[in-house]
Design a protein around this nucleic acid. Structure first.
Length: 433
DNA sequence: TTAGGGTTAG
């Protein structure tokens, strides 16, 4: 196999993400990477590799950029579009700031390129500072529809739907992404009636929207299909969700995640885990969202050994650094199975401070297994983080009451009243499609 | 007809 062919495979669509690593390894081991002639100059080589890793291990794209600088291969606009995209994934956002990349692009005079501007705008939108997004947008001379759509999405992500609508109404050109960005903004801020109202005014025919797309797969893009699986999954209509999933001609990692999560969150853990195996057989590369769903499924079925193996494999096999959600899942996994000592040890040896979700998972396990002392200890830690969390007072009070520690239970209820915290009444909700 | 940007999953 010659290097020209391998590089072209990398540059074009690759059917299976795990082929990227194989091709990269082959290029290195056969010492072909820097011996290619013709158009494959070092910049193009690096850009191709950076782009190839973008959707599977985004932080590898960023690492490759440091190698690129080390090898004095001058980055261009193509490099920075990929880098800004890589930096905007949640894994990278947790540990990186965009300013060094921004400075590099500025220094090299690349920020005038519209693709670079849009990808930088997208990164700022995901970082969450609307004022920064506005600043970057204002520097674009003639913003195209893609840049405008990022701006719309940024308003929606920040819950500023007033500005989103104002902006949207003044757009000279709108496409399906403009509409879905506004609709998603309403959904994110839980304004469902407005989301449906906007759907009716836009590119669909009201309530038939979901039916149309589920029945005519030719219309269904990966985005639509994935949103539809999520829609059905969240309402517990798993058969509809799975039908859409099976009908889809193209699936991305988001699509698999939506289906696996739907199974995992509706008591169909075995199917979630089976689908995870099928995903890997299909050559799809799991990401951090996949593992949240898979670990959740393991926790619900108390499959401690399997869950622990998956957690280990994240870093070793897939290059994914576990984040807070994964630690929360693991504590839930160990805690539900009654392994409270291991769960506590796990919390105490985490590489960063546990947040309320992790401590809450441990307290939940204490409640199930009647571990009063540990529950109170973790409760004290959690109250420091969330002093006004009504559910926590109730949970701690219940743990103590179950063990007939009426004094402690009453103290907690009293503290809750004195702090002016009211218990939110429980409610049931029935929904239909 | 292709080295690059926007909407989907937790």
């Amino acid at each position: 196999m010659n290097s020209e062919y391998l590089l072209q495979r990398l540059q074009r669509f690759i059917e299976r993400p795990n082929q990227i690593k194989q091709i990269h390894s082959l290029l290195i081991t056969t010492a072909l990477l820097f011996n290619t002639a013709s158009k494959w100059n070092p910049t193009l080589l690096y850009n191709t590799l950076i782009r190839a890793y973008l959707n599977i291990i985004p932080h590898c794209s960023l690492t490759l950029f440091t190698f690129m600088l080390h090898h004095q291969a001058p980055p261009n606009g193509h490099t920075f579009t990929s880098l800004f995209k890589a930096a905007s994934t949640s894994q990278s956002l947790a540990s990186l700031s965009c300013s060094p990349l921004h400075a590099q692009a500025l220094k090299r005079g690349i920020l005038t390129d519209s693709f670079v501007q849009t990808s930088l705008l997208g990164l700022c939108a995901k970082l969450g500072s609307l004022s920064n997004v506005r600043k970057v947008f204002e520097e674009i001379l003639n913003p195209c529809i893609v840049a405008c759509n990022v701006m719309l999405d940024a308003f929606g992500r920040n819950g500023d739907m007033g500005s989103a609508l104002f902006f949207f109404d003044r757009l000279s050109e709108k496409d399906v992404v403009s509409w879905t960005s506004v609709i998603n903004g309403f959904v994110r801020s839980k304004q469902f009636a407005k989301a449906i109202w906007k759907s009716k005014g836009g590119f669909t025919k009201g309530g038939r929207y979901m039916g149309i797309f589920s029945e005519t797969r030719a219309f269904m893009t990966v985005f639509m299909g994935t949103a539809l699986i999520d829609f059905y999954g969240k309402r517990g209509h798993l058969e509809f969700a799975f039908r859409v999933f099976n009908q889809m001609l193209d699936r991305e990692v988001c699509t698999w995640n939506a289906m696996i999560s739907s199974f995992a969150c509706n008591g169909r853990e075995k199917e979630a885990l089976d689908l995870f195996e099928k995903m890997k057989v299909d050559g799809m590369y799991p990401n951090e969202v996949t593992f949240v769903a898979v670990l959740t499924a393991c926790a619900c079925t108390k499959r401690v050994q399997l869950g622990s193996q998956f957690f280990q494999s994240m870093r070793c096999q897939y290059g994914i650094v576990p984040i807070m959600e994964h630690y929360g899942c693991m504590v839930d996994l160990l805690g539900r199975a009654g392994l409270l000592t291991q769960a506590t040890e796990f919390v105490n040896t985490m590489p960063f401070q546990p947040d309320a979700s992790v401590l809450g998972a441990l307290i939940g396990a204490c409640k199930i297994h009647g571990a009063i002392e540990l529950g109170n200890e973790m409760g004290r830690r959690l109250l420091e983080l969330q002093p006004r969390h009504c559910g926590l007072y109730v949970a701690l009070s219940t743990i103590n009451a179950d063990k007939e520690r009426w004094d402690r239970a009453a103290d907690l209820r009293k503290a809750m009243v004195e702090a002016g915290i009211r218990k939110v009444p429980a409610y049931s909700f029935i929904d239909s499609v």
